[in-house]
Amino acid sequence: MAYFAAGCFWGVEAAFRQVQGVRETVVGYQGGVTINPNYQDVCTGQTQHAEVVKVVFDPNVVSYEDLLNVFWQSHDPTTLNRQGPDIGTQYRSAIFYRDEEQKAIAEASKQSQGRRGFFRRPIVTEISPALDFYPAEEYHQQYLEKRGLATCHI
C-alpha cells in the first residue's frame, strides 16, 4: 500500500487507477488530529487532514518508485496548501510512508525531483508517517469514473 495527497482526491485517484499493477484505490483522509472525520469536517481545515488516495498495488507489476513518478506528474508539488483553485491544508502535497523503506525511497525521489530542475520553485511536499487513514464517504469513491469524466478541472 501507498498513500498520496496531491490536491483534490478525485483527480489523483483517477491518475492512479490508470496505472497497470494498481489493484485498488480508496480516497480518504489522513495526517490530521480528528478521529473519523467526514468531508465537511475536513473542509473546515480544523482537522488538519489531507485528502489522500490509498493505493493498493502489486509490486511485481509496478514499483513504489513508479507510483512516486505518477504522484510527481499529477500535481504541482511547489504550492503550499493549494492545487489550482483548491485552497486549504486538505489540498497539501504529501507522501505518507508505511515503513522506513518507503520513507527513504520517498525522500530520495523528492531530492531527485528537486535536482532535475523541472519545477521552478522549491518542492514543499510533506513526507510523514502513515498513521490512521479514514475512508471518505462512498460518493467520493471513484467519483470521476462514476460520472464518465477522465479528469478534474485542474
Rank of each mutant, 00 (worst) to 15 (best):
P129I: 14
N38R: 04
L68S: 01
N38K: 01
C8D: 02
Y139F: 15
N60W: 11
V19W: 07
G117A: 05
G88R: 00
E145V: 15
F118Q: 10
Q30M: 15
E138N: 13
G117S: 08
Q20V: 12
I35W: 15
N38M: 01
E138K: 08
F96K: 04
I105H: 06
A136H: 05
R17V: 10
Q46P: 01
T25Q: 11
I35L: 15
L80Y: 05
K103V: 11
C43T: 02
H153F: 01
D41C: 05
R116P: 01
K103I: 09
T44L: 07
K146H: 00
T89G: 07
V27K: 01
R115F: 10
E24W: 09
I154W: 03
D41I: 00
V26R: 11
P85W: 11
S63V: 10
Y39A: 09
S128L: 15
D58H: 13
N69Q: 07
Q113K: 12
C152T: 00
A104D: 11
G88N: 01
R116D: 13
I105A: 07
F16A: 06
Y29G: 08
E138Q: 11
K146L: 14
G117M: 09
F118L: 14
P122W: 00
E126P: 08
Y139L: 14
A108P: 02
V22Y: 06
D99P: 04
R120N: 10
D66H: 04
R98I: 08
V53Y: 08
A2C: 02
R23S: 13
D41N: 14
S74Y: 06
D58K: 12
R92M: 13
Y29P: 00
R120C: 04
